[in-house]
Nucleic acid binder design. Structure first.
Lengths: 337, 337
DNA sequence: CATAAAATTGGTAACGTTGTCAAACTCTCA
DNA sequence: TGAGAGTTTGACAACGTTACCAATTTTATG
């Protein structure tokens, strides 16, 4: 029956403490020039009433919202949860909050979500990748708040980017394949190479092979989402078209591991008959024999760094970083190449 | 030089279209009783000015924010990204937005984050688990908005819960172990059994073994986070204490797979020398031989269902679900038991 | 054609907070 | 003891939107 009491406001706290609203406000946000006695009185009143500030109201007046729009393609990717974890670790203890948007690997969707999230007046935007729709790019360029593009670092950021080099990844693996003596090299990707990151990696891989006087014999880009099954299917198609292939680079570890299963099931010896390499350096790799050759992408580090830069920028720190920040990759040699 | 123009407001749109602010507001939020001509005029003006609504202001006046606070322990868990994906899928096309909080498996932290997120006046709360600190429980109970507790379903929800039964999981595996003839059974957990879910599973497992006239010979709860390494370490300790053990149930697939590696490395034959079973039913399982016996938890389904219920409740649908919703588990027999 | 009913538009006042400025009070030091 | 500086407190207005109600126009009805 009892109509639940509406949430107490600063007005209630002020009345309860016998001070003005603005003084209560000053106490709550630890503003300077408040006497100890007033501070205590307000704190007591706030606790007594169970006051919680209304950040919506504060944001409206104060213009800055402490909300950070984070836009990633999906959570089922193995990559973006790590990024989010890193961001959250950096935001730990600050007042910054993540508002999440997922683009489903679709640029139009990304733009729509960006517009929607901007209506929350975020204090910053963290978005994945350097490639966006024309509309999204224009919006991002016009933004007053920090815009940090994560994951990718071979291109020019709108404001600041934290990522790793897809070209470098392609080069590392091409060099490794050549060094190990493979000559008939293939590639398997997924998701129609959306986002563009994986394509960049493949093109860099091809280019480096070309520098070594080799060419990519064949490549198979599946439409389906990355998974073990997709990797297996991709490899099967590749091998039926180009049976003499001796090494395959995959867009990610999931595909490569799926392909490894396929080989195992079909009596193809890895690496003797066929060498396989992945990308990302997921923990799973540790559980599977032979251990996959791959390249570790610094996912949590990217998130943490992006989060820290966001904090610095919003805190107005003059030494906050800008521009392109390249995080190192580590080559993880395994027993599959 | 050019001071960037401030974001256009409804006032600007209204002036540009030659109508009142409130009319512009009505057009923007598709309210009824607006003539076609006025609608068009306002839309044109809005597009011309590049107007984006300010939801902060709208939320302040309108009281409801369309922000949904989602609190999970971590993203590196393999489980929660799937839940978030499910939630996002449900919110797709609606105006609901996820504001994220991570509790780091700490109830005090969870309570702090809950308080913080509430200051954003969320229209709903999705939080993981049925166990919370006394303070958090009190806050959640007092909330006017829908509160959906996800993952767990053996306990009473504050408002509504969507999850699966830990007891049921424990029972399924106990029955399976007994049926397969194992008698000297152990258990390995991690993270000090935070959150309490895994403990519930273990206790139900023990209880069911007792019904079969068996007892859990030994269990080893590691302090470290779940990982392959933790699983291997846990199993090693368990076996050094109780070398005659013949089957082990693990708190999750990661631990079980790590243990499997350990067996492989130490010449322990699975399942002949030792049977292993996990929990969760991660995709990884498909890539590893012998295939792990486990139980699939309906993670994305839980997220999607919770998101849908949230939508229904906020939309005021009278048939929106309430109370405890139990999602089915599927037993996935493998070759490790 | 008059009148009631419905549809359309606008004015005003909030929502809860904080920036700006001014007033009051306290303290220091000549 | 009084001027000047510093500290503490408060009043007011504003952030951009929408709820509520009133005014106006259009449409339907007898």
């Amino acid at each position: 029956m009892a109509k639940t009491a509406p949430r107490p406001t600063l007005r209630d706290v002020a009345d309860h403490a016998g001070v003005s609203v603005i003084s209560a406000s000053r106490v709550m946000r630890e503003a300077p020039n408040v006497s100890e006695s007033l501070r205590v009185r307000v704190k007591v009143a706030a606790t007594a009433l169970g006051y919680t500030p209304n950040r919506i109201a504060g944001s409206l007046r104060g213009q800055s919202s402490d909300l950070i729009a984070v836009i990633v393609p999906s959570m089922s990717n193995n990559v973006f949860p790590d990024i989010l974890d890193g961001i959250d670790a950096a935001f730990q203890g600050s007042s910054l909050r993540t508002v999440l948007g997922m683009s489903r690997y679709d640029m139009a969707e990304e733009e729509a979500i960006l517009r929607d999230l901007l209506s929350w007046n975020p204090s910053g935007v963290i978005i994945s990748g350097l490639e966006h729709s024309a509309g999204a790019s224009e919006i991002l360029s016009g933004l007053q708040c920090p815009v940090i593009e994560v994951m990718d670092s071979d291109g020019d950021p709108i404001d600041t980017s934290v990522g790793f080099s897809m070209s470098s990844a392609g080069h590392i693996m091409a060099d490794h394949f050549v060094e190990r003596g493979y000559r008939r090299i293939g590639y398997v990707g997924a998701w129609g190479e959306r986002p563009a990151r994986s394509r960049k990696r493949r093109l860099a891989f091809e280019a480096r092979l070309a520098e070594h006087g080799l060419s990519l014999i064949d490549h198979q880009i599946e439409d389906a989402q990355s998974s073990f099954a997709t990797g297996a299917a991709g490899l099967a198609k590749l091998m039926s078209r180009s049976p003499n292939i001796d090494a395959v680079f995959f867009a990610n570890d999931d595909l490569a591991l799926g392909a490894m299963m396929h080989c195992h099931a079909h009596g193809i010896l890895v690496p003797n008959d066929l060498a396989l390499a992945g990308f990302n350096g997921l923990d799973i790799r540790d559980g599977i024999t032979p251990r996959l050759t791959t390249i570790r992408s610094p996912r949590a580090e990217i998130g943490a760094r992006a989060g820290q830069i966001m904090l610095d920028r919003i805190g107005g720190r003059s030494d906050a970083e800008h521009g392109r920040i390249d995080m190192p990759l580590s080559f993880l040699p395994g027993e599959t190449t």
